[in-house]
């Protein structure tokens, strides 16, 4: 099962890296808009939400929140 999952993920990665058209920098106006480029603007808000989720849900990940007494492990 894990082997098949690994094969599938590798195939997706290969398709992503090789199968998509090249987009020149001057064609990325839409990607630079605030509605698409949200990483920095939402960084602190998302970190807070992640910390809350970490303290209330069993699945933790995708964040580097400090532990901090809440039993978030």
């Amino acid at each position: 099962m894990r082997f098949k999952l690994g094969i599938a993920l590798t195939a997706v990665l290969a398709a992503l890296l090789n199968g998509c058209g090249h987009v020149a920098p001057y064609e990325r106006e839409a990607l630079a808009k605030p509605i698409m480029d949200t990483t920095e603007r939402e960084r602190m808000r998302n970190k807070f939400l992640s910390h809350l989720n970490d303290s209330r849900e069993g699945a933790i990940g995708s964040s580097d929140n400090a532990g901090g007494g809440c039993g978030c492990n």
Partner: peptide, 15 residues
Amino acid sequence: VEQVLGPTITFSLGY
């Protein structure tokens, strides 16, 4: 991995 798929589309995958 983060990939620009087109002028209006991006995709990212992480582990």
